[in-house]
Design a binder for these strands. Structure first.
Lengths: 133, 133
DNA sequence: TTATTATTGCAACAAAGTCGCATTAATTAA
DNA sequence: TTAATTAATGCGACTTTGTTGCAATAATAA
């Protein structure tokens, strides 16, 4: 299964880079300059995940989000992504929080996957709100 | 809107207590001794949430899970549920992890909701697996 | 240029969750 | 005990998310 370079693929990648936020499928689709099928977008994104360019997580809205694997620290391929994701409820931006989080599990428990998600208001938006008052 | 005590409501509560695990709608439905409509189950659970008997969170499968507000520590009504939930991929049990988790947000960021979810293997199941080898 | 096969679009589908509305039934008042 | 009030339920319809099969398209290798 060698990957082929296609316009769709490049476009998805371009949007992910340009927007600088993790994106759910629908966020992405609305930003695409070329229209493409929902299934295609999912397939492209999941391929990126397999290739380690992108990682996937679940938001507190139950949706899958996809983020470029940059600014996520120096993760290597089999690395657990033990960081939180933060979604700003004002501007909609979803970002990776830098610090790795350690959760102490009870004795004998083993982690397979980690999903940390916080919703709130980011610095930019909370200062704006202060300004408005 | 005074709450009424109904058989359905009691049954849902009974299952939640008996199973001792957080449950998604479908897990719950399959354990009910009385069949009831999907919408009804959701409405009952969401009412429990409003009343503070139950809290809700999202699993890494994107589903909503509901857990009784016991063994979750001494949360008061407006308390953030800053604890992780752990789902055992072997036995399916979903439990609240005791320790409260502190995530240090960048300056100016405000938390509105917290969702921490870990999948893996619980102590019981991982010791069983050792035994099998 | 042709053969190979990864990629795409389309349609269909399943599952999760919500909502409106008519009916049922728990509670309160008479 | 009966009647009135209205919360709770069941049903159906619907939206959204995500996946999959299959035929058509197109990127790559021969």
């Amino acid at each position: 299964m060698k990957r082929r370079s296609t316009a769709s693929k490049e476009e998805v990648l371009a949007v992910l880079k340009a927007e600088e936020t993790a994106m759910s499928h629908d966020m992405l689709q609305s930003k695409l300059s070329v229209s493409m099928d929902r299934a295609t977008i999912y397939r492209i994104l999941n391929r990126f995940c397999e290739d380690g360019q992108v990682h996937k997580f679940v938001g507190d809205d139950g949706k899958q989000y996809f983020a470029l694997c940059i600014n996520c620290g120096d993760e290597t391929e089999h690395h657990h992504h033990n960081h939180f994701h933060f979604k700003c409820l004002e501007c909609g931006k979803v970002e990776c929080l830098r610090d790795e989080v350690e959760v102490s599990l009870p004795k004998g428990y083993v982690t397979r996957s980690f999903n940390g998600f916080i919703s709130g208001v980011c610095a930019g938006c909370s200062s704006l709100k202060k300004g408005e008052e």
